[in-house]
Design a binder for these strands. Structure first.
Lengths: 131, 131
DNA sequence: ATGATATTGAAAATGGTTTTCATAACCATA
DNA sequence: TATGGTTATGAAAACCATTTTCAATATCAT
C-alpha cells in the first residue's frame, strides 16, 4: 500500500482551485504564501518531487509553456490533452468539438504504422476576454 | 537588403541533409566535426543566434523534445506542423491524413471564439523500424 | 580608406530543474 | 516503545540548455 507523502494533499488542493496550468514555482509560491503563520511550507525540491510523483500516478496533466517551462494541472478523467490556451492571460479551456479531433487522431494513428502512440496537442490564441 | 551572416549557409546545409529535427548543440557538433582541417567552426552562441534568426525568417520549424530541448529543422512550404516522432530513434515523419486534421482544427478554431489561433501538434510513438 | 552597422567568440550569467546528502518522519514488527 | 528498514524532506550544490555581455572583427556603402 502506498504511503502518501504529506505534502501531496496540499499541492493537489492548490491545483484543484481552478483548471489553469501552473508551473512548479507558481505552486510553490502559493504554498509559501498560504502557510504564513501555520508552520513551514514544503521546499521547492519537495514540490518538484511531488509534482513528478503525481504525474507518474496519472493525477496531473502537463504541457510546456512556449518558453519551455513545464506546467501542471489536475487531470480530468478521459482527458485526452486537448487544450486551448490564451497567450495573454494563460487561461486554458477545453477544445470544443474534441470528439471530432479525437477521431481524426485515431485514424491517423492507425494509418501511421507507429506503435505506442501518444500525442500532445496545443492550441493557443487570444481569448475573447483578452481581445 | 538583408546581409546574410556567413554561417547561415553552413547551418542550413547541415539541416538540409535530412528532415530530422536537431538541437542547436547537435548542429554545432556537426559543424565542429565537419571543420576539422578547414578553419574554425562557428561558436555555439553563433549557432544559437543563427537558428533564432532562421526561425524568425520562417526558414526553420521548431518543436520541443520531451525533455524540453528546442529542436530545429528545415521548413517545408505550407507545413502546418504535423509531426510524428519516434520516441526511440528520433526520426520524424509527416502525419498521414493531415488534411483531415487541418479541417478539424479549422472548425475548432471557428467554434472557440479565440482569435489569432495557432497550434502545435505532436504525435509520438515507436516507428516500425524500432519496434 | 573611413566610419557606421552587424556578426562573432569566449566567458559569464540565467533560470528551470535535478541531484546530493544528511536529517527527520514514518511504519511494521517484536 | 524500542528497533530497524524504508521513504520523505530541506538546503545547497550541480546540471545544462539557452542568453547575455562585451570586446574584437568583419562587412558594407560611400
Amino acid at each position: 500500500m502506498a504511503r502518501t507523502p504529506r505534502n501531496d494533499a496540499l499541492i493537489l488542493e492548490v491545483l484543484g482551485r481552478n483548471r489553469r496550468f501552473r508551473s512548479c514555482q507558481e505552486v510553490h509560491i502559493v504554498l509559501v504564501r498560504r502557510s504564513s503563520g501555520q508552520g513551514k511550507p514544503p521546499s521547492l525540491s519537495t514540490v518538484y518531487r511531488a509534482l513528478h510523483r503525481l504525474v507518474r500516478e496519472g493525477l496531473l496533466d502537463t504541457i510546456r509553456s512556449p518558453d519551455g517551462e513545464l506546467l501542471y494541472r489536475l487531470c480530468r478523467t478521459s482527458d485526452r490533452h486537448h487544450h486551448l490556451m490564451c497567450r495573454l492571460c494563460g487561461r486554458v479551456e477545453d477544445v470544443p468539438q474534441a470528439e471530432e479531433l479525437s477521431a481524426a487522431l485515431d485514424r491517423i494513428g492507425g494509418a501511421s504504422g507507429f506503435g505506442g502512440l501518444d500525442y500532445t496537442f496545443e492550441l493557443s490564441g487570444v481569448c475573447p476576454r483578452c481581445s
